[in-house]
């Protein structure tokens, strides 16, 4: 039997705007995923530790504070260092196109901006987990 897709949904950084993260988490649940929701104000260390313990297929970060160019690379580096570099790192937030491109270059998965339908994110993670 194929396992369920497990996704870690985390709010990185200090901003408290969790509307998007929660909507995405609920939509993923309704798509049949098991969503591990960490809550707010997570440091890269917390996120990676949770990803390891929870054995997830993907890590989805929501960042609206503008700190994405610091936080995504830091999480990715830690994931590689701890031996889960093969787990998909994706996410969304207010992230300019150029930044998305340069993060992608660095090895981060696709990132989603405001106005993205939840189905796009779900399809992407499902496709990547297969």
């Amino acid at each position: 039997m194929a396992g369920k897709i497990r996704v870690l949904v985390a709010k990185a950084g200090l901003d408290g705007h969790d509307r998007g993260a929660k909507v995405v988490a609920s939509a993923m649940r309704d798509a049949g995923f098991e969503v591990i929701y960490t809550g707010l104000h997570q440091t890269p260390e917390m996120i990676v530790q949770a990803a390891i313990q929870e054995d997830v297929d993907a890590v989805a970060l929501s960042i609206l504070s503008g700190a994405h160019m610091t936080l995504f690379p830091r999480v990715l580096a830690l994931m590689r260092e701890k031996g889960i570099g093969d787990v998909l790192l994706t996410g969304g937030g207010i992230i300019p196109k150029e930044d998305m491109a340069s993060l992608k270059q660095a090895g981060v998965g696709q990132l989603f901006g405001p106005g993205t339908p939840t189905t796009a994110i779900i399809d992407y993670i499902r496709g990547a987990s297969e």
Binding site: G13, L14, D15, H41, T43, S65, G66, A67, M69, T70, L71, R74
Partner: peptide, 22 residues
Amino acid sequence: DMPTLMGYDPDHAMALGEVGRE
């Protein structure tokens, strides 16, 4: 900015990447 809103000085670990942004 976020560190100010959350009561952190800019050299706190939680402030990383957030100083003066929002």
